[in-house]
Design a protein around this nucleic acid. Structure first.
Length: 420
DNA sequence: TCTGGGGTCCTAGGACCC
DNA sequence: TCTGGGGTCCTAGGACCC
């Protein structure tokens, strides 16, 4: 029996999280900014209606923000992560098979349920009651169609937030009025190329010959076309897969020009990345360091470089990763540039069980290292950064600009809201 | 003045081998 | 010295997603 998918997606997730603890802002337009308060990454419905686009740099929207009295928040990922976990936990009760797809959405296997719309409504009201975040539900025989259904549930008020797209006639009607750019997996470039050959709606895309699409574009597009036609190519994947890559990178609040400043930043990223690696219980073999100036900075010459190195054996030891990261940094560093961003990437992972001891590596030495890392992680838990290695620099004022951050309502005792 | 961060997957092309 | 085609493996970079 073929699967029926329900895609549950939170409405304006970050904005809704901020509103959760500020009911006074219920009807006030509100935006959430990226790190460094650089870009607008989330908008409440009112702001979307004003036509302010996702990803707009703050300085470009300043005038409109003032004019409409838009509330501005710096991003508060601790809060969003915690609210997300509560939403996902609530969803577990509606299906034995839940795939958490991103921080604000999940696919549910709802195969065999008869009153699908009612089920969707129940999901909505339960999440609202338990967590307080509004969600929309799209139901369909493939993931791509359930995405489409979810978009429609968000766009059309009359749907009351739930669209059941199991009926092929209904699929066709919706696809007819959906621009091809709104299809999951069709981005800017693909939209451009497709429009050139007269494919401007989802329906036109669905009517393309899959094999031709593969020849001319890619297997990804071929799959998308099959999915639009109700043929499921993307399975529900509930198994938690460890990441294949860990990245820690940041743009700076101020440009960096000094060797020591940039080096300390890279060390900080390396240490953070190693922490994430240990949290995933993985070991890495590859380390990559990159630094670059801003592509928007016209006051000086541009420079961007990256170096990749390999550890002598897979490890999650901060000291070993730091050591290699510093050597790689020295390879890419050039004097005389105004650096805007840097990052450290880890890759080529394996599980600790798969690693053999090398000739000079004693089991005792290794467990001592593990114990040390564990202690450090415990002390640093919560991103406080109380302990660091030489070379690493704890957060400095130029590190990140965050002028409007909301309290950690749900994860810090001192920030729990009071009821009066 | 001020332009996010963290991922995945696929493809093209080079190196190398037979 | 002439010089083909096919296979594998790896890497860099592009496109996309949220």
């Amino acid at each position: 029996m073929s699967t029926t998918f329900a895609l549950v997606d939170c409405n304006n997730f970050y904005a809704s999280c901020e509103r959760l603890f500020r009911p006074d802002l219920k009807n006030t337009p509100l935006v959430v900014l990226s790190n460094n308060d650089g870009c607008i990454v989330a908008r409440s419905q009112e702001v979307k209606d004003l036509g302010i686009k996702m990803g707009t740099p703050l300085f470009k929207a300043r005038e409109e923000i003032d004019r409409h009295g838009i509330q501005v928040f710096s991003s508060n990922y601790t809060l969003y992560g915690d609210i997300s976990a509560r939403v996902m936990q609530t969803l577990e009760q509606f299906s034995p098979n839940v795939e958490v797809y991103s921080i604000d959405e999940a696919f549910l296997d709802v195969t065999g349920i008869r009153a699908l719309s009612d089920h969707g409504q129940l999901i909505r009201s339960t999440v609202m009651q338990h967590v307080g975040v509004p969600v929309c539900v799209g139901i369909a025989p493939t993931k791509t169609l359930s995405k489409l259904a979810n978009n429609a549930a968000k766009k059309f008020k009359a749907t009351q937030g739930v669209v059941d797209l199991t009926d092929p006639e209904r699929q066709k009607r919706l696809m007819q009025i959906t621009p091809v750019s709104d299809v999951w997996g069709v981005g800017r470039k693909l939209t451009e190329s497709l429009q050139k050959i007269g494919v401007d709606t989802a329906l036109r895309l669905a009517q393309m010959e899959p094999s031709r699409a593969r020849q001319r574009f890619s297997v990804v597009l071929e799959r998308t076309i099959c999915e639009l036609n109700g043929e499921s190519c993307l399975e529900l994947d509930e198994t938690w897969q460890p990441r294949q890559q860990i990245m820690c990178s940041r743009s700076f609040g101020e440009k960096l020009t000094q060797y020591s400043d940039l080096k300390e930043t890279v060390c900080e990223f390396a240490a953070r990345a190693a922490e994430k690696l240990r949290r995933d219980k993985q070991l890495a073999l590859m380390v990559n360091v990159f630094i670059r100036t801003s592509p928007f900075d016209k006051t000086g010459p541009g420079y961007s470089n990256t170096a990749t190195g390999t550890l002598t054996q897979p490890s999650s030891d901060t000291r070993k990763i730091l050591d290699l990261a510093i050597r790689l940094f020295d390879m890419v560093w050039r004097d005389g540039y105004r650096y805007a961003k840097a990052g450290v990437m880890l890759g080529d992972f394996c599980s600790p069980n798969d690693v053999q001891l090398s000739l000079f590596d004693s089991q005792k030495g290794r467990s001592e290292n593990e114990a040390l890392m564990k202690v450090i992680d415990t002390i640093n838990r919560g991103g406080q950064g109380n302990i660091w290695f030489g070379g690493q620099r704890p957060q400095k004022d130029w590190f990140m600009r965050q002028d409007n951050v909301s309290p950690a309502y749900t994860t810090r005792w001192s920030s729990i809201p009071e009821v009066k």
